[in-house]
Structures are given as structure tokens and as C-alpha cells.
């Protein structure tokens, strides 16, 4: 039975984008989308178009910068890179996320134990 794809929680896409750019350096929109899909082993249900709303939001907050350039295969594209303030924000958000997920993990584990 094929596993159904995961819906994204609100706000998590922004974090993924920041992390991807921090890890991979400047990327264009398609690159970011593919990278996230690949890392998640294609279990995340991503309408690639939604990445652009996330990108513009992060841009407006000053966490990303963008620049038109030319890709390896000679195609014009807009390249995004993470700013200093973006890294700061990423550190904050990642820490928060890790704390949250570890708490979530513990809470869920607790329930399983209780079930036995």
C-alpha cells in the first residue's frame, strides 16, 4: 500500500527554504523545490508554485536576497541566497523546531506506551 504524501504545516516551507539555501548556497526557485523534494524522498506534497509565495515573503523580511543570473545549462534564472539576518533567523527557527519535534516525539511515545 503506497504511503500517502505529507501535507506541509504552515510555516515549515519557509524553514525548509532557508535551510536548503544555507546548506546549498545560491539556488533558483526550481532548484530549491527539487532539492526539498529529493531530500524528503518525494514524500512531501509540494505544489512547486507555492514556493514563490514563500520566497517573496522571505525576501520582503530581508532574510533572502535575489539576483538574476545564468544557470549551468545556460538558462536565465533568478538566484536566491540567504542573508546574514536570514541565517540568524534560521538558527532561531531550527532550534525552536528541534525542541518542538523532540517534545512531540516524547509526547507521542508516551501515548504509545500508555496504550500497552
Amino acid at each position: 500500500m503506497p504511503e500517502s504524501k505529507l501535507d506541509l504545516l504552515q510555516g515549515t516551507l519557509d524553514l525548509m527554504v532557508l535551510q536548503t539555501l544555507a546548506a546549498m548556497g545560491p539556488l533558483h526557485g526550481y532548484g530549491i523545490a527539487r532539492r526539498i523534494e529529493r531530500v524528503s524522498d518525494d514524500v512531501i506534497l509540494l505544489n512547486q508554485g507555492t514556493i514563490y509565495a514563500s520566497l517573496v515573503r522571505l525576501l520582503q523580511r530581508g532574510w533572502l536576497s535575489a539576483e538574476w543570473g545564468v544557470s549551468d545549462n545556460n538558462r536565465k534564472a533568478k538566484f536566491y541566497s540567504i542573508t546574514k539576518r536570514g541565517r540568524k533567523q534560521l538558527a532561531q527557527d531550527a532550534a525552536y523546531w528541534q525542541r518542538l519535534s523532540s517534545v512531540m516525539g516524547r509526547v507521542l511515545a508516551l501515548r504509545e506506551e500508555g496504550g500497552h
Binding site: 533558483h28 526557485g29 526550481y30 532548484g31 523545490a33 527539487r34 512547486q48 508554485g49 514563490y52 517573496v56 520582503q60 544557470s71 545549462n73 538558462r75 536565465k76 534564472a77 533568478k78
Partner: peptide, 26 residues
């Protein structure tokens, strides 16, 4: 962004165009 709607729209248009270009190529 509200005030300068048109150039941003054009920019986005171009971006989507190149996005689809990458995807089709792949």
C-alpha cells in the same frame, strides 16, 4: 509591492517561465 505591481508581476512571470523551462528539460 502594492504600489509597483506591474514590474513585480513581470518578474514573477519570467521566473515561472524559467522554472517550467528547467522542469521540462529535466
Amino acid at each position: 509591492a502594492f504600489l509597483g505591481k506591474q514590474p513585480i508581476d513581470q518578474d514573477l512571470e519570467a521566473e515561472i517561465h524559467s522554472h517550467l523551462g528547467f522542469a521540462i528539460e529535466e
